[in-house]
Amino acid sequence: MNRRTLLATALLAPALARAEGRTLRVVNAYSAGGTADVVCRILCAALGPRLGLSVVVENRPGAAGTIAAQVVARAAADSTTLLYDATAHSVNPALFGPRLPYDTRRDLLPVFLAMVTPNTLMATNAFPVQTVPELIALAKSRPAEIACATTGIGTAQHVSLELLNHMAGIGIAHVAYREMASARNDLTAGRIPLQFSNVPNTLPLLQSGQVRCIALTGPAPLDILPGVPVFADTLSGYETWEWNGFFAPANTPSGLIRDYNAALNAVIAEPPVLERLTGLGALTRANTAEEFNTFREQQITFFAGMVKTANIRID
């Protein structure tokens, strides 16, 4: 083992060491095959051997991630259950309000920020627009006639669309799909002209030549998407991200959270893991649980403003 691996292993506290040989259940809030599932399984496959645990990923999709979150919020605060959630986690407090069956801040403790990635706006090859200014001009000339797919109300992609509408003064119609595969199929078949997605889901479609990417929602271009500009070039300050992370039930000992955080930081530094995540366009960085908590607070605040501004509602 290298020095970094030895250090990470040495940091594991007795509480986690006593869990060796047990099963860690990671409840994934999203369906199999999507970005959150792929990244989660890459990380968990490396996490198990590092901790001496059998790690089982359990997909519990539905209701914008609240089904899985509720399962973990009610779980015992021990070493056997974690939640793997994504951007909707920080949208749901504003989206559901008092109907949310748990308290996001109180019941789910940040453990580790697994990845961030910009969103993308994809278009069919037949769509008569190449750039963001051209899209804005077309949308203004055809109010409410252009439709854009996302994977659901309140998702990072939905917020990206509403932020575009708000900042550009246009009204591209939102079409919410239940899953990425259905939206992707309708886009590639030409049944819908636009789709907000994320980088990992965009890459294979671009590489196959089935779609074009008009712009990214991050602040700067990505090497993995050469030639694709950012919305901020046209709309100053425009920026949205999709993220994934691990959470623990309330009252989980802080030492145990630090142990998992140290192990996951070591996992993303492993060359095979880093290579796979980089190839997906999933951006990783070392982070503490405290830093992830600060990030979550920033995201909750941002999305609360967007839900109000865009009048986003879920029935």
Rank of each mutant, 00 (worst) to 15 (best):
L256N: 10
F231T: 01
F231D: 00
Q299H: 08
F246L: 15
A282D: 02
G281L: 01
L205S: 07
E290Y: 02
D223S: 14
P226N: 11
T294E: 15
Q299I: 07
P200H: 04
F303K: 06
L256F: 14
T240W: 02
G279N: 03
G218R: 01
E297P: 00
F302N: 05
W241S: 06
N265K: 13
I214C: 05
G245E: 07
A232T: 15
P226E: 08
P204A: 11
R258W: 02
P271L: 15
L280D: 00
G305Y: 11
G281H: 03
A262L: 07
L277P: 00
A310E: 09
Y238K: 01
T294H: 14
N293R: 11
D223W: 08
F231R: 01
A310C: 14
S236G: 07
R212E: 03
P204R: 09
A266P: 01
G279S: 07
E275Y: 03
E275F: 04
N311R: 15
V267Y: 05
F196W: 09
N244S: 12
L283Q: 07
I312G: 11
G237N: 13
V211F: 12
A262H: 13
T288S: 12
F247L: 13
R212L: 13
N287Y: 01
S197T: 14
Q299V: 04
P221D: 11
R285N: 04
L216M: 09
G281E: 01
G237M: 14
F302D: 05
P272H: 10
N287A: 13
P219Y: 07
T278L: 08
G281Q: 01
G305H: 08
T252A: 04
N201M: 15
F303G: 02
I312E: 14
D223N: 09
T294D: 15
L235E: 04
G227E: 02
I257K: 06
L194D: 03
L264A: 05
S208V: 06
S197Q: 04
Q195I: 08
L216T: 04
F303N: 15
I312Y: 14
T309G: 04
F196R: 03
L277I: 08
A232Q: 12
G218K: 02
G227I: 05
A286R: 15
P253I: 10
L235V: 05
E242H: 13
E297V: 06
S254G: 12
V273Y: 00
Q207V: 05
P253Q: 10
L264S: 04
Y260V: 03
A220P: 01
L280E: 01
Y260C: 03
A250G: 04
R285Q: 09
A282M: 00
V199L: 07
I300D: 07
M306Q: 14
F196Y: 15
P193K: 06
R258G: 08
P253S: 11
N265A: 08
P226Q: 10
V199I: 13
N198Y: 02
P272K: 09
P219V: 04
F303Y: 15
S197C: 10
E239I: 00
E290P: 01
P253A: 06
T217Q: 05
E242P: 00
P193L: 09
L225F: 08
A310S: 12
T202M: 10
T284N: 02
K308H: 12
P229E: 10
E291Q: 14
E275P: 00
T217I: 13
F292Q: 06
N265G: 13
